[in-house]
Design a protein around this nucleic acid. Structure first.
Lengths: 154, 154
DNA sequence: TTTCATGTAATCATATATGTTACGTGATGG
DNA sequence: CCATCACGTAACATATATGATTACATGAAA
């Protein structure tokens, strides 16, 4: 339990979902992939649902489904949907009386805005399809051999 | 008390120091500028001292001094000296057995490395002199009138 | 109408950052 | 030589953030 692993979790789960495309998967299943709690999945995926990346249905046979092809979802999309801070820069005081501190805050605001823009551009160049293509070849062999989801050792 | 305000604090204090150049200033004085505790200043400035940006001397008349001209210190220098994480992206698991998660980790590592590079380049273009130049003109008037450091209202 | 699955609030646990206290070390001045 | 000053640092306290867990409401399907 450390520092903002929501993007990591979301990517991991989304890629697993892609392998079971068009099947509604429950929060419990997704949670077991990410070794976390179903409620954590629902919270994390709420943003993705609002962004139209995944859909959810209730009741029998319900669960989560991917709504877009892998090459139509960028890491920037996911990051934005999760609404995370991304940058760990804070200000000592929000509206200081000191003129020096105001100048510092203004400069940092500018730098952070620029950094966000650069980061977003960087993340928007990577799609889920790119990540799927980089999954080790050993997995393909296992899949071909008909093994049932040997995802984690637990 | 929020999130990683060390860069903010460091910049604020360094700019105040620049106004009293060549005078050794105690941690207590710097702390009163940043409205914090002297020990926090010592901790924060330890990295700056190791990086050769400031120096510290003990005993009577001791304290902290700026060792470089304002235009020879970039925000990237300070950020690196503070050794902060900067990016709030973490991984769910450090060395996962799941191939999918490994691919995610690898991709995120690459993206974070690239982002760090971009950020560093962005911060290395701003010097303390640039910040000093952007301090509001009202302050100059007060300085000229001989007012003694009306930095904060406390 | 019972069961299943999401939606969400509330609470707990833990990690990180900052604030504070206490004490050690070295340098200066008397 | 020793009292004082200021940094160096460990130890502890507090605040915030994130994730885990519990509990319950809502809606859909068998």
């Amino acid at each position: 339990m450390k520092r903002n692993s929501r993007l990591s979790v979301a990517l991991h789960v989304l890629l697993h979902m892609a392998e079971q495309a068009d099947k509604a998967l429950t929060s419990d299943v997704l949670a077991s992939w990410a070794a976390t709690n179903p409620v954590v999945i629902r919270r994390t995926f709420a943003g993705l649902r609002d962004a139209g990346i995944v859909g959810s249905t209730k009741g029998h046979g319900g669960g989560w489904t991917l709504l877009r092809p892998l090459d139509a979802v960028t890491l920037a999309d996911i990051q934005a949907a999760l609404d995370e801070p991304l940058l760990a820069l804070g200000k000592a005081e929000e509206s200081p009386g000191c003129m020096v501190e105001r100048a510092v805050n203004a400069a940092l605001d500018d730098a952070v805005a620029e950094a966000r823009r650069l980061l977003d551009e960087c993340l928007s160049r990577i799609t889920l399809a790119d990540l799927a293509a980089q999954i080790g070849p050993r997995r393909v062999v296992l899949q071909a051999a008909g093994c049932k989801d040997p995802h984690h050792e637990s």
